[in-house]
């Protein structure tokens, strides 16, 4: 068995905000009709959470559940539990027309935190990140500079960002530039 490592190897940057690698995270894509009982059951089995509303993220002590599109959820869980979770989810799905797949190694997870976190991310993404428009638990799939990314607000001052593993270095780089000391805009 090869040793799994995260794309950024624990990288960390401190500037206007702290940008850090979150390490390995288990990720399972669940695709299907989100209103179907079997899919709801599978989501609960995988993450311990009920299906969140449109563009929301929910967290439980077992994991997290993210709304990715009208027919797609993403389950987050500890990296070494993925196999068991996928098996439990597949069992819960039964014969429903839906699919649970382990995508842990396809993506990277970063955290952006600090009082200026909103400002740093707003420089890179075409989304209204003002406190009135984007609150705790809100999730968006959008762009960070030139690549696709999903992010949600974990608490008032920290975002969790998911991007493809192949562009993790790029995302870390642009976040570093946006969080450079002395580059505060003071918009929010």
């Amino acid at each position: 068995m090869s040793e799994a490592v995260s794309a950024l190897g624990g990288a960390r940057f401190e500037g206007l905000a702290v940008v850090e690698d979150c390490g390995l995270s288990g990720m399972i894509t669940l695709r299907g009709d989100l209103s179907a009982a079997a899919v709801k059951k599978a989501a609960l089995a995988g993450s311990g959470c009920a299906v969140p509303g449109e563009r929301k993220a929910v967290v439980s002590d077992k994991g997290a559940l993210l709304w990715m599109s009208p027919d797609e959820l993403l389950v987050l869980c500890p990296y070494d539990e993925v196999g068991a979770r996928v098996a439990a989810m597949t069992k819960a799905l039964g014969k429903a027309h839906a699919l649970a797949v382990n995508v842990s190694d396809a993506r990277a997870v970063l955290r952006l935190s600090g009082p200026k976190a909103r400002e740093v991310l707003a420089k890179l993404s075409p989304v209204d990140l003002s406190p009135e428009a984007f609150g705790v638990g809100d999730l968006r799939r959008s762009r960070i500079a030139q690549v696709a990314a999903a992010y949600w607000l974990e608490d008032e001052e920290s975002f969790r960002i998911i991007c493809f593993r192949s562009v993790a270095e790029y995302v870390f780089g642009v976040l570093k530039v946006a969080a450079a000391k002395g580059s505060a805009v003071g918009y929010f």
């Binding site: 990715m68 599109s69 009208p70 797609e72 968006r140 799939r141 959008s142 762009r143 696709a148």
Partner: peptide, 9 residues
């Protein structure tokens, strides 16, 4: 149009 960076639809 396609919401390519978002939900993909």
């Amino acid at each position: 149009w396609r919401h390519s960076y978002g939900c993909g639809k």
